[in-house]
Amino acid sequence: MATAASPMAQVRKQGLSRAALARRVGSLAIYALLSVGALGMMMPFLYSFSTSLKRNVFAFEFPPQLIPLHPTLQNYVEAWTSNNFQLYFWNSLIVATLTMLLSLVVASTQAYAFARLRFPGKNAVFMLYLITMMIPSTVMILPQFVLARTFGLLNSLPALVVVYVAGGIPFQTFMLRGFFESLPRELEESAYIDGANRFVIFSRIALPLAKPALGTLAIFSFLGAWDEFTWALTVINDVGKRTLPIAIRLFQGQHATQWGLVFAASMIAIVPVMVVFVAFQKYFVRGIAAGAVKG
């Protein structure tokens, strides 16, 4: 290596490689830190996944085994085939998907009006939205239940969708409004001057630009509906119309919890949200930032 090079060149070369080395060590350290952190974040899932592969008698074995000695899929089979679990799964999927789609429509039109149009009472309505974000939704259960009865919605999946969409309106409008405001308005203005009506401007120009924020909103509303427990418990009676969180709760017994079964059911429940998140996550970072806090 040193055969042809002058001493000067050699020094320079060494210096360079030292800097490169430092960079490499630095980035290695960053990756190491991130990996350790990620492992810490994943540990609770890994351990409960491991438990889901154990027979219940081994849930509190001593010493605890991270890798089960006698792994079995029995819990998954039992959870999945226990009466109606599959149905609950589809119910959750339908409710979450409908909530997501309707939220997109409702929140985007609302947010656009707040961001771009002038009308009397605008600030008052917006303030109302902000304030309701501070009031816990649990307090509304009884009135909402009576309302659902009035509309004949009790014991039906639409009752879930209706309340989930309503619950999401303030935050989602707030987030999307921020995003619309962060968009340049020139395009819309010129379209307006060219005589396009506002709905066309909204759907052809503003919405396409808002894709990242809409993707974010899609994730939030899907997740919210997928995980909701209290309202679903209250309004659904039919075994055939239940959603997943209630099913999981049913496995948590009155006398002793069957941990393996609980975690097998939980793992199954996590899969769809993972899929939705991974699918939309590309938009997520941009959408969440611009919407949450415009600059």
């Binding site: 039109t109 609302q110 149009l117 909402q144 969409v165 619950g167 309106i169 506002r198 709905f199 909204f202």
Partner: peptide, 20 residues
């Protein structure tokens, strides 16, 4: 125009959140 944009969500909100 704003009213048209707002109305669906606003009614929904008033009925299922504000009223309760």
């Amino acid at each position: 125009a704003a009213l048209a944009f707002l109305l669906p969500g606003l009614i929904w909100f008033l009925l299922w959140t504000a009223y309760p």
